[in-house]
Amino acid sequence: AMEMGLACVVCRQMMVASGNQLVECQECHNLYHRDCHKPQVTDKEANDPRLVWYCARCT
């Protein structure tokens, strides 16, 4: 999947907007926009540098 680069696995886009940054699952290393992931990634989750985030598939 490395050839995908830094794109969201849901929408396949790399564009990021304020409040909709890409977050990386620490287990599978897929990237998700906060708005694309279900459930939506919260501000607290996205902005906490100590948080280890896992996508819905890996939790």
Rank of each mutant, 00 (worst) to 15 (best):
A1S: 14
A1W: 05
A1M: 13
A1K: 15
M2S: 14
M2V: 09
M2C: 07
M2W: 05
M2G: 12
M2Y: 06
M2P: 03
M2L: 12
M2E: 10
E3C: 05
E3T: 06
E3F: 03
E3I: 04
E3V: 07
E3N: 09
M4Q: 09
M4A: 10
M4C: 11
M4I: 13
M4G: 10
M4F: 07
G5D: 14
G5N: 14
G5V: 06
G5H: 13
G5S: 12
L6S: 15
L6A: 15
L6K: 15
L6D: 15
L6G: 10
L6R: 08
L6H: 14
L6V: 13
A7F: 05
A7D: 11
A7C: 11
A7H: 15
A7R: 10
C8Y: 00
C8S: 01
C8P: 01
C8F: 00
C8H: 00
C8W: 00
V9H: 10
V9D: 04
V9P: 03
V9E: 05
V9T: 11
V9S: 07
V9R: 05
V9K: 03
V9W: 02
V10Y: 04
V10C: 05
V10I: 10
V10S: 02
C11A: 00
C11Q: 00
C11M: 00
C11R: 00
C11W: 00
C11F: 00
R12N: 12
R12H: 11
R12V: 02
R12D: 14
R12F: 04
R12M: 08
R12E: 12
Q13R: 04
Q13M: 06
Q13H: 10
Q13P: 02
M14Q: 15
M14Y: 13
M14L: 11
M14V: 14
M14E: 14
M14H: 11
M15V: 12
M15P: 15
M15K: 15
M15E: 08
M15I: 13
M15T: 14
M15R: 13
V16K: 13
V16H: 14
V16E: 13
V16A: 14
V16Q: 11
A17F: 04
A17T: 09
A17Q: 15
A17S: 12
A17V: 08
A17I: 07
A17R: 10
A17K: 13
S18R: 09
S18I: 06
S18P: 15
G19T: 11
G19P: 09
G19H: 08
G19R: 07
G19I: 06
G19M: 04
N20T: 11
N20F: 05
N20M: 02
N20P: 11
N20H: 11
Q21D: 11
Q21V: 09
Q21K: 06
Q21T: 15
Q21G: 11
Q21E: 09
L22Q: 03
L22G: 12
L22F: 13
V23G: 02
V23H: 08
V23E: 03
V23C: 07
V23W: 10
E24V: 03
E24R: 07
E24P: 02
E24M: 02
E24L: 02
E24G: 03
E24N: 03
E24T: 05
E24A: 06
C25R: 01
C25N: 01
C25M: 01
C25L: 00
C25W: 00
C25H: 01
C25P: 00
Q26K: 10
Q26E: 11
Q26M: 05
Q26A: 12
Q26S: 10
Q26L: 07
Q26N: 12
Q26H: 11
E27N: 11
E27R: 12
E27W: 04
E27C: 07
E27A: 10
E27H: 11
E27M: 07
E27K: 15
E27G: 10
E27Y: 04
C28G: 02
C28R: 01
C28T: 01
C28V: 00
C28M: 01
C28N: 02
H29D: 03
H29Q: 05
H29W: 02
H29Y: 05
H29F: 05
H29L: 03
H29S: 07
H29R: 09
H29N: 07
H29E: 05
N30L: 12
N30R: 11
N30P: 01
L31V: 13
L31I: 12
L31S: 14
L31A: 14
Y32R: 03
Y32E: 02
Y32N: 02
Y32T: 03
Y32K: 02
H33S: 01
H33Y: 01
H33C: 12
H33T: 00
H33P: 01
H33N: 02
H33V: 01
R34P: 15
R34F: 13
R34L: 14
R34K: 15
R34C: 05
R34E: 11
R34V: 11
R34S: 12
D35F: 07
D35C: 10
D35N: 09
D35P: 04
D35A: 14
D35V: 08
D35R: 10
C36N: 02
C36S: 01
C36V: 01
C36R: 01
C36P: 02
C36W: 01
C36D: 01
C36I: 01
H37F: 04
H37A: 10
H37Q: 05
H37D: 12
H37L: 06
H37E: 04
K38A: 12
K38G: 06
K38W: 03
K38V: 13
K38H: 06
K38M: 09
P39T: 08
P39F: 03
P39E: 03
P39H: 02
P39A: 03
P39Q: 02
P39S: 04
P39C: 14
P39R: 03
P39I: 05
Q40G: 12
Q40D: 09
Q40A: 12
Q40P: 11
Q40W: 07
Q40T: 13
Q40N: 14
V41R: 03
V41Q: 04
V41P: 04
V41W: 03
T42L: 06
T42C: 15
T42G: 12
T42M: 06
T42A: 11
T42R: 08
D43V: 09
D43E: 10
D43N: 14
D43C: 08
D43Q: 06
D43I: 08
K44V: 10
K44M: 10
K44W: 03
K44S: 08
K44Q: 08
K44H: 06
K44T: 14
K44E: 14
K44R: 10
E45I: 04
E45F: 05
E45T: 09
E45D: 12
E45G: 04
E45H: 06
E45V: 10
A46E: 09
A46T: 06
A46M: 04
A46Y: 10
A46C: 06
A46P: 04
N47Y: 04
N47W: 06
N47C: 11
N47T: 08
N47G: 13
N47F: 05
N47K: 10
N47I: 07
N47A: 05
N47P: 05
D48E: 09
D48A: 07
D48I: 05
D48C: 03
D48T: 13
D48P: 04
P49L: 07
P49D: 13
P49T: 13
P49N: 05
R50P: 10
R50A: 13
R50L: 09
R50G: 13
R50S: 14
R50H: 09
R50C: 07
R50D: 11
R50M: 11
L51F: 10
L51P: 13
L51C: 13
L51K: 15
L51Q: 13
L51D: 13
L51T: 14
V52K: 15
V52C: 11
V52E: 10
V52W: 02
V52T: 13
V52H: 10
W53V: 02
W53C: 02
W53S: 10
W53E: 07
W53L: 03
Y54H: 15
Y54D: 05
Y54T: 15
Y54Q: 13
Y54K: 15
Y54P: 02
Y54V: 09
C55I: 00
C55Y: 00
C55H: 00
C55P: 00
C55V: 00
C55G: 00
C55K: 01
C55M: 00
A56F: 03
A56I: 07
A56Q: 05
R57E: 11
R57V: 08
R57Y: 04
R57W: 05
R57S: 11
C58E: 00
C58T: 00
C58S: 00
C58K: 00
T59A: 13
T59D: 08
T59R: 12
T59H: 13
T59V: 04
T59M: 04
T59G: 06
T59Y: 04
